[in-house]
């Protein structure tokens, strides 16, 4: 009970920070708390948010994923190239047909899953730190994306772009996708054996192994999930802007995703993660990004503030965890 209560409390702490920020921003600029601006805010953070759900799983098992942005760039370029008009002079693939969007997106997601499988297998079987494995994967995927196309993959079909830039009942699809992913993440973590195993592995992987959990198989699944979220992010990024530039698409998104998961209380010492926390983490960083721009605050100041919040949240998190022992 007491752990549950503490967890409940810490979740609410994050929301308190968020509410305080929203109040500050609303007072500072009356154009902040408008429907159109909040839609802008959510649209802008959704992709990083989806990636944050991915990397949160890795962090939960004491891992990390630095390849998210690069995987997004590779998947964005590959799946985008499949939906370019065949008569387009600058088409990335000189031959081939224009696939229907669902097929191209599916291929993109499968590519992401395959990359994740490789990363996961390397981490599980060689036992090298996830930091190193995914740093390597980042370089490889970014280079592969640039080799695949040395210019932005553009003129993407409208049906492909629907997920990234369409709207349903006035709500951007990108936000709807984010909500769906949040629900799926919550379901996996709370209601599946896989999710519960992750908490066990994160808390103590030796104990988990002894308790009969197949740690290696679960680790592979974690990185498949991570890369799948990165791949989805890549599809959304390409869809949002109508063009996927392999050299800049998704650049440093992994860092924002890690920051959001961290601010959201996902503990880098493993075993602690909640979906609501991650959502709050994303919203806090989003409110800062958006609100300070509206206030005309220098970007450098914005980044300093974000840095302080990231460090501060981990300091709080560590104190919390020490007390638990």
């Amino acid at each position: 009970m007491s752990i549950q209560r503490k967890k409940f409390l810490s979740d609410n702490m994050i929301w308190l920070v968020l509410i305080a920020l929203v109040i500050i921003m609303s007072i500072a600029n009356r154009n902040f708390a408008t429907v159109s601006n909040l839609t802008t805010l959510l649209t802008g953070e959704a992709i990083k948010g989806i990636m944050a759900f991915g990397v949160a799983f890795a962090i939960l098992t004491k891992g990390i994923d630095l390849s998210l942005g690069a995987v997004a760039a590779l998947v964005g370029a590959v799946s985008g190239a499949l939906v370019q008009p065949t008569d387009f002079a600058m088409r990335t693939l000189s031959s081939g047909v224009r696939l229907p969007a669902p097929a191209a997106i599916l291929i993109g997601l499968l590519l992401g899953a395959a990359i994740g499988g490789c990363i996961g297998a390397i981490i599980a079987y060689t036992e090298i730190p996830a930091f190193i494995a995914t740093l390597g994967a980042q370089l490889i995927c970014r280079a592969a994306a640039k080799m695949f196309s040395n210019r932005p993959v553009s003129k993407l079909s409208d049906d492909y772009r629907f997920l990234g830039s369409g709207r349903v009942l006035g709500i951007p699809m990108i936000v709807i996708v984010f909500i769906i992913i949040a629900v799926i993440s919550w379901f996996i973590l709370v209601h599946t054996r896989f999710g519960k195993s992750l908490y066990a592995i994160g808390a103590n992987s030796q104990a988990a192994r002894v308790a009969g959990i197949n740690v290696n198989a679960n680790l592979i699944k974690v990185y498949v999930w991570c890369s799948l979220m990165a791949a989805l992010g890549g599809v959304l990024l390409a869809g949002r802007s109508g063009s996927s530039d392999p050299s800049t698409s998704g650049l440093n998104y992994e860092l924002d995703a890690i920051a959001a998961a961290t601010v959201g209380g996902t503990s880098h010492t493993g075993g602690v993660c909640s979906v609501t926390g991650v959502i709050a983490g994303i919203l806090i960083l989003g409110v800062i990004n958006n609100g300070l721009v509206l206030m005309g605050v220098d970007d450098n100041m914005t980044n300093i503030l974000k840095g302080i919040i990231i460090i501060g949240s981990v300091v709080l998190d560590m104190r919390k965890n020490i007390k638990k022992v």
Binding site: A28, I288, L305
Partner: peptide
């Protein structure tokens, strides 16, 4: 109480930064 103290400190930093950052604004 300790956690709340930490939290309020954070909010204050945020407030301070936004206030001084927005000096021009």
């Amino acid at each position: 109480r300790k956690m709340l103290a930490g939290l309020s400190a954070m909010v204050m930093v945020v407030g301070l930064l936004t206030a001084c950052g927005g000096g021009g604004s």
